[in-house]
Amino acid sequence: MEIDALMADHPILWTFRRCPYAIRARLALASSGVTVELREILLRDKPAAFLQTSPSGTVPSLRLTDKVLDESLEIMIWALKHSDPQRLLEMPQVGWDLITVNDGPFKDALDHTKYATRFPDLDVQEERRKASGYLLDLNEQLVGRTWLFGDRPTLADLALLPFVRQFAHIDRAWFDAQEWPNLVAWLDRFLDSAVFSLVMHKRTPWSEGDAPVLFNG
């Protein structure tokens, strides 16, 4: 079947429930209200239709009529440029700077900590220290604020929170014992939110012939 025929009605979002990149893409789509067809996959058993769509073979991947968006931040911006009722794109430049650090040095340190056995030449305590430095900066950013830039979330909050969640869940007791109370409160507020519950809903992995699963927040 031709790829364009598969998405006659809505863009197709290929996703994996626990992937932080996919989580933040779903968060932006839910916030925008843009309707997509959601296709959950197993990373250990990627469908041929997904591999035909995604140039990188990674999630999330959004198939549009004329192109494929294969980066989570691209998908977030695409969705919010279509509809942004919460004004998530209205944030200062420092928000973009935080995303850059999150997606670079922090993500590296997170992976080196969470998957330490894959990196035997690295000191896991040093990698956790690197990640913690970034998180302490976020804690300072949150002093006196509900969200990173005030009393409402922005794109930066949605883009960062799935990765902070992943880091916290390496050892939640240790995480909660650190000197970053504002960060813990920010994360817990997100974990208790309706939108987090929505985007983390468990779905059966997609297979050829399944009825479309529509997602629009």
Rank of each mutant, 00 (worst) to 15 (best):
A30Y: 02
Q166K: 06
S193Q: 04
V213H: 13
S32K: 05
F163P: 01
A173S: 14
D66P: 14
A159Y: 06
L160T: 10
F215C: 06
W206Q: 09
W186V: 06
M76C: 15
L80Q: 05
D151C: 03
V143R: 15
D176N: 13
G144L: 06
L148A: 06
S193V: 09
L88H: 04
E71S: 05
G57E: 10
F163I: 00
H82M: 13
A131P: 00
D97Y: 01
A131Q: 03
D4H: 09
S207Q: 15
S32L: 09
T53I: 11
S83R: 14
D171A: 08
T117S: 15
A25G: 05
T117E: 15
D151W: 02
V143Y: 11
Q52K: 13
L110T: 01
T117L: 12
W14D: 02
G150Q: 11
P105D: 13
P55N: 02
L135N: 04
D45A: 15
N216C: 09
S54Y: 00
D4T: 11
T113P: 00
S72A: 15
D9M: 07
R24I: 04
A8S: 14
V213D: 12
S132L: 06
K81Q: 15
W174I: 00
L13F: 05
S54P: 03
F190C: 12
R39A: 01
A48Q: 13
